[in-house]
Design a protein around this nucleic acid. Sequence first.
DNA 1: TTTTGAATTTCGGGT
DNA 2: ACCCGAAGTTCAAAA
Lengths: 231, 231
Amino acid sequence: MRLVVAKCSVDYEGRLRAHLPLATRLVMVKADGSVLIHSDGGSYKPLNWMNPPLTLHEGTPDEDAAALGAVSTWTVASAKTDDKLTINFHSFEHDSAHILGTDPGLIKDGVEADLQRLLAEQIELLGDGHKLIRREYMTAIGPVDILARDAKGATVAVELKRRGDIDGVEQLTRYLDLLNRDPLLKPVTGIFAAQQIKPQARTLAEDRGIRCLTLDYDAMRGVDDSAGRLF
Amino acid sequence: MRLVVAKCSVDYEGRLRAHLPLATRLVMVKADGSVLIHSDGGSYKPLNWMNPPLTLHEGTPDEDAAALGAVSTWTVASAKTDDKLTINFHSFEHDSAHILGTDPGLIKDGVEADLQRLLAEQIELLGDGHKLIRREYMTAIGPVDILARDAKGATVAVELKRRGDIDGVEQLTRYLDLLNRDPLLKPVTGIFAAQQIKPQARTLAEDRGIRCLTLDYDAMRGVDDSAGRLF
DNA sequence: TTTTGAATTTCGGGT
DNA sequence: ACCCGAAGTTCAAAA
């Protein structure tokens, strides 16, 4: 990884055009060729970047750039698309290179897939006597997160979200419309389950006869006997 | 901006849990407090990060971390949420600080808004004799990108995308269903316009009687007399 | 301030 | 390889 802190201007041309006026920024060149240009604020997203595979050419500024005071120009071109990044350097404050090696990678825990696994294992959270039919029950319009059977034997479709929003209710509604056309499953009721359910979504769901279920991930994780195995 | 290259392990706990095993990485601390942890590959997205406002505490490792060889521990806590990042440093390879100043910011050109403006100005790209009714024509289910009238006086609804995908066709279909219920507008035909239209989207669109229009942004920009004013 | 939709989205899983 | 959907989405603009 090469780290360059320098006063520079940047132009990107590809899927869009973008221009960065002259200022001091960090230019990061990763081992795989990625180029990232960061300012000293904002978020984790760089101001500009290029993804590999690419070619990086360090050259002399063209006439216009030189007239404006550029002393070095990097031309970064994507090997696959016609994206191009041009960095005109005016002065360098820092330039260092480092060997980092490959990263073992991030281990995540607590995403929707985990919620789904936990809810399938603790299916009675839906209500006493509920039995799991299956996860990711395929339909023509996509997979229903969880299909279950309640104590009375009626089918229950569960839409699972980390954050329950209107579109999740719409999604479940479409599934319910479809599933209720199947005489073998009919009648199918719906449960909208999420860690957090927005008031609007709750109102819409209940208006459509869909039950809402707020999930406590930490509690569910506590019940799960495999909890903590990652750390 | 502070740049630290060090062998470290990282734990994040917040909206999810995540763990990074011991490896050499770049830890970037921006002037606004943001902390970014980058590996030497991947994309522009850091492995872990924390957004401001936050507090950064440099302390000594706890017993467990020290036993594993940690010599310094950073605790980064969000001031607003309960997100927390813990970095256990085992050895430092580089540590430098730099004054960058505020960034003048990025100037973009060529996003969907530009496309829409250009297409509205060059409405005859839809076909000879087309007239603009209005941009962002509001309906109960959202704004239609462009509403126009063709040479015969029939209404035309345009859905505009940078990259034309199935969901864009679905969106336009919903608009057309709605607009065709309005006796004042009926009959309304649809045009799906995008810089790139995926084959599946094109097939679906044409199957529904929606015309597809591929837009050449550079050509449209060339026609626009305000082109190039940004640079 | 909340909400809505785009993004040079990225990223991962499945087919 | 493409397709689909989640994301600690982030981000900006509009309501």
